[in-house]
Amino acid sequence: MSSPLLSLFRREARIARSIGGGGAMGVVFFLILVSLTPFAIGPDLNLLSRIGPAILWIAALLATLLGLDRLFQADADDGSLDLFMMTSTPLELVVLVKCAAHWTLTALPLVAAAPLLGLMLGLEPEAQAGVAASLLAGTPALTLLGAIGAALTAGMRRGGLLMAVLILPLTTPVLIFGVSTAAAASGGTVPFHTPFLILCALSLATIAGAPFAAAAALRAREG
């Protein structure tokens, strides 16, 4: 990795960790969402452990999208985005590195927290491992799909809600295969690797494609 991209990654990390950067908010939001659900459903441990992977996945989906609206908005507001276009680094790579930094700082803590929260939902150890593995494989796709929405709404006031409306339908395949991966880990008729490999494929496809879509949206922001 060349040094401009490395310094971009470090800058993103430092901003996310600073006050108001929102780095830790995603995992706190995840924690609250998952602990609220049992109150709504009631103390039926069998039911909770059956729908636990789904609860964790929906909470992870919302927590990932929560911080993404600021991914390009902040840079558009302070003029950094203009300057990114003047670097010799392709804008696609800038997008990819910003997504990588965002994923490391918001989605990776979710993956680490998911087994612990799974315990609260009465998940079996295999199911906990399955949820963590499926989140690890699936969250890159969520981040990169969200980046397309963030790029499309970068110039707008209150673009965050519009971004969620645009992007949530596109995350359906990731959600389906994420939950079925987690369910396959704790038994069932489907072998674990079948949905898991599809989930990996979804992430790889978005890593390959989404930076181009997001960069094109950022270039077309004006004019």
Binding site: S2, S3, P4, S80, D82, L83, F84
Partner: peptide, 27 residues
Amino acid sequence: YVGHADGLKSALTALENLQFWASMLGA
């Protein structure tokens, strides 16, 4: 390009901002 927006991150120090742009724009 120096425009109306300064291209600076308020959470970072002046030196960190400049170091970042030195590495991005100096490429």
